[in-house]
Design a binder for these strands. Structure first.
Length: 311
RNA sequence: CGCGGGGUGGAGAAGUGGCAUCUCGCCUGGCUCAUAACCAGGAGAUCGCGGGUUCAAGUCCCGCCCCCGCAA
């Protein structure tokens, strides 16, 4: 059943793209899709379209990209006269005057159990904190980040997820929630609930440096980092002057390896960590190289054994 | 034209002008309480592609293709 009201979709990242794809598959067509323009980036310093832009153009949806809303709004946005909007991982705050363009508000998809994990890295932080459950919350945007009243919330149990798989699972859950909730919301059957702001927690922006390993930390923490920071920035250290990424790891049961010490034991590559623990490296990648198994890497780099990594 | 690393037997690496190397894997034989088993022998490479310089090019020069890191 197609929704009764016209809507605009805001999104930039692959998470957004996945949600938009889910909506389209369910027959919902936004009247307009809005995405951001990133700065020139990539190896060739080319401006690359966001995943949302690629999808919108393939689906031949009305599309406009913006740098910011500081100066003005795109004509399309004011002309369309949509009644509500859906926003997921858009990466820009919407000013109040823009929110007011939508009589029924802007529904924001946030991949956490708000008011927990507000901010830019809820998925990653839930993994770092070894949470047993996380979830998706739909809120009506207000002027503060992830602060508006809740219209729906669903839990999702965490297994040994990395951020990539968890992003996919939360996006899929979000699509199902939107399908169910939006019609009721448009019909006025849902009363938004104010968040308990006293319980709010916040996440911060992830940088390349966030993924840097310190082998004085316990193996479990390092393994959490590896999963939380997949695919970017990854868990990494430096060796022989360049970056070495640990693509796939697991916590070893071995003890008594000095923090930072690299050894080969029982056919596996181990690095000693803090609190008498060890991290097993299953797959790794050197700067400039493809990912390779621990064994392949060691065959070509015997000297990696018996070295000591920073801690 | 943002900066940088790389492409060498099946896998991973060394190799700055002079016999194609190392580790792993594979094959054959031997040894047998070794444990990343060991010993001996063996197969397997148009050194990413195209051109050039040279008596001689994996190596130097020019062009192209592909992979990756930084940075955003």
């Amino acid at each position: 059943m197609v929704w009764s009201e016209k809507f605009v979709f805001f999104g930039s990242h692959d998470f957004s793209r996945r949600i938009l794809a889910g909506l389209l598959a369910g027959g919902q067509q936004p009247a307009l899709v809005i995405s951001t323009i990133s700065k020139p980036s990539g190896r060739k310093k080319i401006i690359e379209p966001t995943p949302v832009e690629v999808l919108a153009k393939n689906a031949q949806l009305p599309f406009v990209s913006i740098k910011s809303f500081k100066q003005s709004y795109p004509q399309e946005l004011t002309q369309i006269q949509a009644n509500f909007a859906i926003l997921a991982a858009f990466n820009r705050l919407l000013p109040k005057s823009l929110l007011q363009l939508f009589p029924l508000g802007v529904i924001n998809v946030h991949p956490s159990l708000l008011p927990l994990y507000r901010g830019p890295s809820p998925i990653q932080q839930a993994i770092l904190d070894e949470q047993a459950v996380t979830g998706v919350t739909l809120i009506i945007l207000d002027e503060e980040m992830d602060h508006g009243p809740i219209i729906a919330q669903e839990q999702l149990s965490l297994n040994y997820d990395d951020a990539l798989t968890l992003f996919i699972r939360t996006a899929d859950l979000a699509v199902n929630m939107l399908k169910l909730i939006v019609p009721d919301y448009l019909a006025g059957k849902i009363k938004p609930q104010i968040q308990d702001h006293s319980r709010a927690t916040y996440t911060s922006l992830i940088t390349k440096k966030s993924g840097q390993a310190d082998f004085s930390w316990p193996a479990k923490k390092l393994d959490n980092m590896r999963r939380a920071y997949t695919p970017w920035p990854g868990l990494w250290t430096t060796w022989q002057g360049s970056i070495l990424k640990f693509i796939k790891t697991t916590v070893s049961t071995e003890k008594n390896i000095k923090p930072g010490q690299v050894i080969w034991l029982n056919n596996s590559l181990l690095i000693g960590c803090g609190q008498n623990t060890a991290l097993q490296i299953i797959e790794l990648q050197q700067a400039g190289g493809r990912p390779q198994t621990a064994k392949d890497f060691i065959n070509g780099h015997r000297s990696f054994l018996r070295t000591s990594l920073p801690s």
